[in-house]
């Protein structure tokens, strides 16, 4: 699914969060949005998810304006978005049940998806019984089971430790390669953006404006990101982080 933003603006009361944002993302692209906290990146995702409506401009999915949530565009939250009263399997199955799939079929498919994210044997556990990494694996399974055409990731691994995060980035990458959704990834982790994304958009503070776009299409990547050192330094500089030792 192709996404297009036309002069999109969004304000909450007096607070202007996004101003005149335009952009076009092709089917199957993975775009990372990085920028200071509270600059409106998450709001962009909510606009695409249909949870919010733009105050100005248009957000189009395959040329049609987005009028509300639809299972073809799904959102993965940072954490605590699983339902504590449902087992991991029931959490994943719920994505299908809400679309009218029978309980039995949904549970069978959910079991397969849990296996796919290496959670075989944890079907009957409740979210509070497993680690944060396992919860986010479940959240990924819940997102992918509905075969979304657009996947919106709102700091999906922000609450995890560095090693767990890298393992999950690999899981996510495999899933994306298999299913080819268009992905918008909001992250604070520049390395995560470099590792996963085809394009990295660096945003200014509120109201969000794109400062610079970096393209990495057709790059073979591993977690050793040393060949992207120059881009990394530039992105950090744009975000206002010191990258050089000051000489007296």
């Amino acid at each position: 699914m192709q996404l297009r933003f036309e002069e999109v603006g969004k304000h909450f009361g007096q607070l202007e969060v996004i101003k005149g944002f335009s952009g076009e993302f092709a089917q199957g692209e993975l775009v990372a949005l990085v920028g200071p906290s509270g600059c409106g990146k998450s709001t962009l995702l909510h606009l695409v998810a249909g949870l919010e409506k733009p105050s100005a401009g248009k957000v189009l999915a395959d040329g049609r304006p987005i009028s509300g949530p639809h299972p073809s565009r799904t959102l993965v939250f940072q954490e605590h978005a699983l339902y504590p009263w449902l087992s991991l399997q029931a959490n994943v199955a719920m994505a299908l049940e809400l679309q009218g799939v029978s309980r039995q079929e949904a549970f069978e498919l959910a079991q397969g998806w849990l296996e796919r994210v290496n959670l075989k044997g944890f079907e009957d556990y409740y979210p509070h019984q497993v680690s944060g990494g396992m919860r986010q694996r479940t959240a990924l399974a819940r997102a992918f089971i509905a075969k979304p055409e657009v996947l919106l990731l709102d700091e999906p691994f922000g609450a995890l430790d560095a090693l767990t995060r890298m393992a999950l980035q690999d899981v996510l990458r495999e899933l994306i390669e298999e299913h080819q959704p268009t992905v918008l990834l909001v992250t604070h982790d520049v390395d995560e953006a470099l590792y996963l994304a085809d394009h990295v958009l660096v945003f200014s503070a509120r109201p969000a404006k794109v400062l610079q776009t970096f393209n990495f299409t057709h790059c073979e990547k591993s977690h050793d990101l040393s060949e992207f050192a120059a881009e990394r330094r530039e992105i950090l500089r744009l975000l206002g982080i010191k990258t050089e030792v000051a000489h007296p």
Binding site: G50, P69, H70, F77, H80, Q99
Partner: peptide, 10 residues
């Protein structure tokens, strides 16, 4: 977030 998650799932 629980409400949003369900809305996103349709």
């Amino acid at each position: 977030v629980h409400v949003s998650a369900a809305r996103v799932m349709g």
